[in-house]
């Protein structure tokens, strides 16, 4: 280990201990030193993850591995204890329920619960070199079933409802140009804005679909319509980008609040 690294490590370790002791001394909970340790640990792990903004470093690696390991193990335990032990076993066998010390639910026995068990075992077959091919059956079932179910769902939402929503009049309350110009205003529910809005929807949908038409080369008028389509898409994406970035900033604010309020107690 280089000398600089050792100095950095020693500094961080000292700061950690200092923070732990100070937080423990001023914490008002029933177990102040444990609370102090947990807050300090959370703060240092947050800073370790944020250190990635500078460059990859051992502290980021530590936080990353800890995060991945804990989350993977937690997900596995949760899946096993809540799904298999918590829901499946109590509906299938009183003996196994007794073994896991969970209550057997006699009236809820259902033979269909055996199917996911079989599929689960078949999936595990891939660990065996000889019977590995059996794991393809549940996979085929999962992929095939979902594709079939989604077929109808998407056809309805992306095809039928799309047509339904695009059928809108382009001229609203139209009584000639004279009436249009004399009553023109920029109210959100006014004739001009409503007509413009409907026009954008119609042109946007038609040109957007043309952009996603793959069977024809995008040249000539088709290419121009496709360009309009991609422009509309890009404007939509721009709006979406700004909106989402604002959401992310609120996440950052949450973390910074934790550091300055819960840990350092600089802000109230």
């Amino acid at each position: 280990m280089k000398k600089t690294s050792m100095v950095v490590f020693a500094t961080i370790a000292s700061l950690f201990l200092l923070s732990w002791i100070v937080k423990g001394m001023f914490s008002e909970g029933s177990s102040p030193y444990l609370d102090g340790f947990l807050v300090t640990l959370a703060a240092f792990l947050t800073l370790a993850i944020m250190s990635f903004l500078y460059k990859d470093n051992p502290y980021y690696k530590f936080a990353e591995h800890l995060f991945v390991g804990v989350s993977a193990a937690y997900a596995m335990c949760l899946g096993f204890w809540s799904t298999i032990v918590g829901n499946l076993i109590p509906r299938l066998s009183s003996t196994v329920s007794d073994f896991f010390q969970v209550n057997y639910i006699e009236g809820d026995y259902n033979i269909f619960f055996v199917i996911p068990i079989i599929f689960g075992i078949l999936l595990l077959m891939r660990l065996s070199p000889k019977a590995g091919w059996l794991s393809r059956w549940p996979l085929a079932f999962i992929v095939g079933t979902t594709a079939g179910l989604n077929f109808v769902r998407y056809l309805r939402s992306d095809f039928i409802n799309q047509i339904n929503s695009t059928i809108i009049p382009l001229l609203i309350d139209w009584n000639g140009f004279g009436d249009f110009f004399s009553n023109m205003n920029f109210s959100a529910t006014g004739q001009l804005v409503m007509m413009f809005s409907n026009l954008v929807i119609f042109v946007g949908v038609v040109c957007g679909i043309i952009y996603f038409y793959f069977s024809k080369e995008h040249t000539g008028w088709f290419g121009r319509a496709s360009k309009v389509g991609i422009w509309i898409l890009m404007i939509t994406f721009g709006a979406s980008f700004g909106y989402t970035v604002m959401g992310r900033i609120s996440l950052l604010v949450g973390r910074i609040t934790f550091l300055f309020k819960d840990w350092l107690e600089i802000i109230s």
Binding site: F159, N161, I163, T166, I167, F202, V205, V206
Partner: peptide, 26 residues
Amino acid sequence: IIVLAVIGVILAQFDFGTEFVNLFEV
């Protein structure tokens, strides 16, 4: 979709659109 939307918009403009829209009402 494009053809049906264009037909629908023309019909909607001349107040024949309701019946046509109803065809796609789920």
